[in-house]
Design a protein around this nucleic acid. Sequence first.
DNA 1: ACGATATGTGAAAACGTTGCCATTCACAAG
DNA 2: CTTGTGAATGGCAACGTTTTCACATATCGT
Lengths: 339, 339
Amino acid sequence: MRLASPTIVEVAKRAGVSISTVSRCLNHPDKVGKKTLQRVRKVIDDINFSPNALAQSFRRGKTNIILVVVHEIGSGLLSEVVGGIRSVLDGRYAVILTESRPDAAQPASFIEMLVAKQVEGVILLCSVPPFSRKIIELNKARNLPIVIGLEPLSDELRKLPSVHIDNFAAASEATAYLIGLGHRRIAFVSGPRQSYVTLDRERGFVAAMADAGLDGSNVHYADLSVNGGINAANDILAGAPPSAIFCANDDMALGVMSAAARRGLSIPDALSVLGFDDMRYAAIANPPLSTVAQPAREIGIHAARRLLDAIDNPDEPGRQTEILQHRLVIRSSTGRGPG
Amino acid sequence: MRLASPTIVEVAKRAGVSISTVSRCLNHPDKVGKKTLQRVRKVIDDINFSPNALAQSFRRGKTNIILVVVHEIGSGLLSEVVGGIRSVLDGRYAVILTESRPDAAQPASFIEMLVAKQVEGVILLCSVPPFSRKIIELNKARNLPIVIGLEPLSDELRKLPSVHIDNFAAASEATAYLIGLGHRRIAFVSGPRQSYVTLDRERGFVAAMADAGLDGSNVHYADLSVNGGINAANDILAGAPPSAIFCANDDMALGVMSAAARRGLSIPDALSVLGFDDMRYAAIANPPLSTVAQPAREIGIHAARRLLDAIDNPDEPGRQTEILQHRLVIRSSTGRGPG
DNA sequence: ACGATATGTGAAAACGTTGCCATTCACAAG
DNA sequence: CTTGTGAATGGCAACGTTTTCACATATCGT
């Protein structure tokens, strides 16, 4: 049977003081007499009292909790971003995470509301419905501070502060790099069409191809997973194969490399593969994967700072989107093309 | 300026009913007159009221939140486990996550307490201090239901329900497999000494080597990361190199493969590498990594069920540790040894 | 030794809900 | 026309804390 936890009242009784005094001992110990403090502390220790956090939060109207929403936790990139976030928030706020990927086919509705309102701010690391939509409502209705990280703004999110790289520019630079290497036939493996990140990257690719007078229509859609990359590669390689494949993220690039290896294509001699994100395993892939790096930790840090701003000055809209620098990192999965 | 959110009182006033009635409309709509219900709902809609979750939780003494503690989110294995957990908890509870890795050199104390007490149960996916210690205290003091997943019990956790594989048996089977392949000189890359998981695996390795009359003393310690694997491999390969390296997790195995590749060692011809966990990228490593698979999703599912049990029957201790089946998955990073 | 100022303490009012109990009212059965 | 029943509603206490205010007592300068 769950024991009823002792309350402040119990402590007061045993210590022979008033409730207020106990509360003071907890929150403003300097305002309490030395002897009293000692006595109260002793009691607290004796009966193993600790204040009911729910009651505290309720009374104070403050939880000191920040929520970070990710689509799914198993990504090294997110881990970095979260590390950045925590590096600025830890100590001031408890950082909790929640996944937005639906698992059971649940309405995904009331539960998030519940979570969201116990929270003083939200960092969205995934800008996709339906979860985000709920959060936005909260933002509007309750003035819940929100910042978006990693992903550019979808239309409905247009008004929110955000921190990310210029995915369009990055993808087009990367494409230009491939072209510079002599590649002429380049395929692009994009992500789901509702993802603004990959959409930007796709547009960057297309634009760079057009700039060079090349055909940028060889675009395939996958689900950002390794398997998606494998499938896309099989599709692409079945036809007249390009000399390079540029993927909207590293997972798919790894999938492509795997599929290529299975077909006996040597990388980068027969096929160049370029990824995006520079996630943890890119550097030790075989061969090491060329990719475009996002400053993940920085993104986390900036996002957290923006959130702090938003919390401290609830009225100001705050600067809007903040663009951080990407970096093309060239390893061994890309080589000279036939051109 | 943050608007004060409208309360149930405001709604009552506008709808010309009592507070109780509004509350009833929210919680037991069937017990309210049709017309009244309609009217109240209209007001709720008009002024965009939604109940203060903090007050609700406080009053009900219930938050409907389950906390999952992981060391760091960036792991595909954890992602699976969490998927399993959510598949049973979603809808009934909101599942939130928190990392135990310290970031700022913060006392890691009060914040977790705060979080922990707003929560109705905890699944620990990392059994290491200091975080877990706090949680255990809570468990003792408040009867907070806890279950450990993925990791065996440390001494202080001995009393808690847990769900994991038999790491000792798995490691010793895997070692036996390597020996069966003809390997005689086998190195083991273990994890930090305070980790019970890797300790069990290490003991399994040592025992299997001893059983076969081989020298099981070639054990190196690393930090479970890719880089740790690389460093360990460099150490190991500098001396008289073994014909196989067995790693306590896949990340390190990937690191070992990468270091080996850099040295021009071909896998599995010159060196067999065996991992542990079967994380997402093991299958598409080059060559694909042999490893021992944990039923990650299952572990999550079982852990969640155990937690539900513990919540529903707070008195019963519940069956203690639950062992799930591991599976040796043989891919291409292991081959015949010189023996 | 006097009023003035600290200092320590307690009483009581919140915070926004929920749920028990009492009340009212309409209507059916007697 | 009374009485009993059930449905719909309102009043109010409670949940455990924090905080304001007032009060008592100790400390100080002169």
